[in-house]
C-alpha cells in the first residue's frame, strides 16, 4: 500500500508508503520502538529533523539502506565512514538536494519540525531556506562579497530595505567570523578571498537566510589546517543557534566538533552514539575497525 507523490521537481518520483508517513510523527518521540539494525540510540529528546527508514537509489545503485536517525536541536552530529558509504547522499536527502540529480530516488520519511519534507505540498525552495548547506569546495558566487550574502535574503524577501539588508549582511558575516577581515572590501569579488575565507563566506551566506539546520559536506577538506581550525571553532559557536550535520573524513575533526557521531558503512547506518563513546568505546566491530584505522 503506497501513495504516489508528485514532488515539485518533475524529474524525481518518490514513493512513500502511506503507513510510514503516518507513523513518522509517533516515532519522533524518544524511547518509542524503531525498527532498525543500527547499534545505539538513533533518537534524541529534542529532534529538529527525523529520518525514518530512508532508502536512496541512484539508478540501480542502492546508496543508502534503511537509515533512521534524529538530528538534535542546537547540537552537532558528525557523519563518518569510508568513501562511498552513503553519508553525503544521506546528507543531501535532508534538504532534498538529490532532487537535482535525475536518477536519484528517495524512499522513507524525513521530517522537519514534524512535517514530512517529501510530502506533496512541501515547497522544496522553502525547505532549502530552512535547511542550509555548505559544500565540500567553497563555491562563492561570482559576485561581490556583499552580493554573495545578500543573495539569499533578497530572493526570500527577508529585508525590507537597504538598511535592513546591510544589517543582515553584517550580522551574517560577523557570525561567520569574517566581518573584521572583509568589512572594508564588501564590494570586492567573493572569489578573490582565500580558500578558508571563501568557505566562511559560504557559511555566512547560508546563515543569512536564517535556517534551522545547516548541512556541511566535508567543509574543510579543501582547506589548510589553520583555516580548518577557524571553521571548527565557528561550527562550535554556531551550535548555539543551529542544528548542524557535518560529513567528515577527518576523525579528529568529528571528535572535536560534534556531540553525536554516526558511523556509515556501505550505505547502512552501523552505529550512532555520543561522540566520546563512539571514539573511546565503540560497540560495533565495524565502527571499532574504522576508528582504530584497521580499514577505511
Amino acid at each position: 500500500m503506497s501513495t504516489e507523490i508528485a514532488p515539485t521537481d518533475p524529474n524525481v518520483r518518490i514513493r512513500v508508503p502511506r503507513a510510514r508517513v503516518a507513523a513518522a510523527a509517533d516515532d519522533s518521540q524518544p524511547g518509542s520502538k524503531i525498527e532498525t539494525k543500527t547499534v545505539g540510540q538513533v533518537t534524541v529528546a529534542d529532534a529538529v529533523m527525523t529520518a525514518r527508514r530512508v532508502n536512496v537509489h541512484y539508478g540501480e545503485k542502492h546508496a543508502v539502506k534503511d537509515v533512521s536517525l534524529d538530528i538534535g536541536r542546537n547540537a552537532v552530529i558528525a557523519l563518518i565512514g569510508p568513501s562511498g558509504c552513503g553519508k553525503s547522499t544521506f546528507l543531501r536527502c535532508l534538504n532534498r538536494m538529490n532532487d537535482t540529480i535525475d536518477s536519484a530516488r528517495v524512499d522513507g520519511s524525513i521530517t522537519l519540525d514534524g512535517v514530512d519534507i517529501y510530502e506533496k505540498r512541501q515547497d522544496v525552495v522553502q525547505l532549502r531556506a530552512r535547511v542550509g548547506m555548505v559544500f565540500q569546495k567553497p563555491n562563492p558566487f561570482p559576485k561581490s562579497i556583499y552580493e554573495n550574502i545578500a543573495y539569499g535574503p533578497r530572493i526570500h524577501g527577508l529585508a525590507a530595505n537597504r538598511a535592513e539588508l546591510d544589517e543582515v549582511v553584517q550580522t551574517s558575516l560577523a557570525k561567520a567570523g569574517l566581518w573584521e577581515e572583509v568589512k572594508d572590501r564588501l564590494d570586492h569579488p567573493g572569489t578573490g578571498l582565500s580558500g578558508g575565507q571563501q568557505q566562511r563566506l559560504c557559511i555566512a551566506r547560508a546563515i543569512a537566510v536564517d535556517p534551522e539546520v545547516i548541512l556541511m559536506d566535508e567543509p574543510c577538506s579543501a582547506l589548510d589546517p589553520i583555516a580548518t581550525a577557524r571553521i571548527e571553532d565557528l561550527i562550535d559557536e554556531l551550535r548555539q543557534n543551529y542544528a548542524i550535520v557535518i560529513v567528515t573524513h577527518n576523525m579528529q575533526q568529528a571528535a572535536r566538533v560534534s556531540q553525536r557521531t554516526a558511523y556509515f558503512h556501505l550505505g547502512e547506518l552501523v552505529e550512532v552514539g555520543a561522540t566520546n563513546q563512539i571514539f573511546t568505546n565503540p560497540r560495533h566491530r565495524l565502527t571499532e575497525d574504522y576508528i582504530t584505522g584497521r580499514f577505511g
Binding site: M97, Q126, R130, G132, N139, P142, Y151, G152, A206, V209
Partner: peptide, 12 residues
C-alpha cells in the same frame, strides 16, 4: 557547484 550553492539557499 555554483548552481548547487544557489539551490541550497532556496533559490528556484
Amino acid at each position: 557547484s555554483l548552481r548547487d550553492g544557489a539551490y541550497a539557499l532556496g533559490a528556484t
